[in-house]
Amino acid sequence: MSDDYGFLAPFYQPLSRLVFGKDLIAANSCFSSFAQDRHSLIIGGGDGSAYKDWDGRYTGEYWDTSAKMAELAGRNLKKSRIRVHCGHWLGDGTFDVVFLPFVLDTLLDSEIDELVRQVHAALKPGGRVILSDFFTPATFFQRALQRLMLISFRLFTNHRRKDLPEYANYFDSDAWEKESSKVWRKGWIRAQLYLKKQGSTG
């Protein structure tokens, strides 16, 4: 398995904090209370820094395709009962909460559609999805920085997208209810909490 994002692992957090301060960590962790004493799934959690304060009340699984990121995540999640895996989550298991931290913007539209369907099927009735990611930039500086990031990722990590997904297209109102949303950087960075509707088929 290729480790396209592995080279970022040693300096991902210093670079992230230099550019975004603590905003990315805050976006990934702001709804963590929903995972306490529940079975959780984290897909594409990077180095797991946003969850390093999780303790034994947190159980479930973490998946990332980068071996180096997964190794760091294992250290950051050591106080929890989250099992760390390297590879692609294949849709197995049943969960109360699913975290999608800055992962959908790395996938093609067809892959996002399939992943959200798998997540919907794996969630228990009344389960929740926590999506954190970049959204439409609000300023010229943000647009320029986003374009630079996309170009850099395409050059150095085999990143396949040239734009951001239209996230709302994958969380339609028939299957999902958006319960809450928090924003940073004038809405460029957001965390959204979605509830799986009772009886929905995804």
Rank of each mutant, 00 (worst) to 15 (best):
Q142E: 11
V183Y: 06
H120P: 02
G126F: 05
R83L: 15
G199C: 07
K162I: 09
P165L: 01
Q142P: 04
D109F: 03
K78H: 00
F140R: 08
E179G: 03
D109S: 13
M1R: 11
Q36S: 14
S29V: 11
N76L: 00
R128I: 00
L145T: 15
S80L: 00
D23P: 00
W89P: 11
K196E: 01
H88V: 12
R147I: 10
I82H: 05
L104M: 10
Y170M: 02
H88Y: 12
Y170G: 09
S16D: 10
E166M: 10
D96Q: 03
L123M: 09
I42D: 05
W89H: 11
A73K: 01
W188C: 01
R147K: 14
I42N: 12
D133Q: 04
L72K: 11
M1D: 14
K186Y: 05
L100F: 02
K22H: 13
E114S: 15
E71P: 04
D3T: 08
R190N: 10
F7T: 09
K178W: 00
R161L: 07
S66R: 01
L108D: 05
F34E: 15
G126V: 00
K196L: 01
L123V: 06
D105P: 02
I112R: 04
F34M: 12
H120F: 04
F31E: 10
G126T: 01
Y51S: 06
L108R: 09
S152C: 08
A121I: 00
Q118A: 11
L145V: 13
S29Q: 13
T139C: 00
G202V: 14
A144C: 13
R81I: 00
D53W: 07
L90I: 14
G6F: 12
S32T: 15
N158F: 03
P14V: 14
L8A: 13
L145G: 10
T106I: 08
E61H: 08
Y170W: 12
A168S: 14
L107N: 04
S180A: 15
F141K: 13
V97S: 01
L24Y: 06
L24T: 06
S32F: 04
N76D: 02
F11T: 15
I42A: 07
R128D: 02
A9G: 14
L131K: 02
V97T: 02
A67T: 03
R38F: 06
D47V: 00
R117I: 05
T59R: 12
H39R: 13
L41S: 11
Y51K: 04
D105Q: 06
F95S: 07
T94Y: 12
Y167N: 12
V183I: 08
F95P: 05
F20S: 08
P14M: 05
D105S: 07
G56N: 08
K22P: 03
G74H: 01
R160T: 09
D133A: 09
W54E: 06
L18D: 13
F34L: 15
Q192A: 03
T59F: 02
A27W: 02
L107V: 11
D23M: 07
F95V: 03
H120N: 10
A191S: 15
T65I: 08
F102K: 00
N169F: 02
F135G: 05
A27D: 04
V119Y: 07
W89V: 03
D3I: 03
Q118K: 15
K186V: 05
F99H: 06
T106S: 13
S32L: 06
D4F: 08
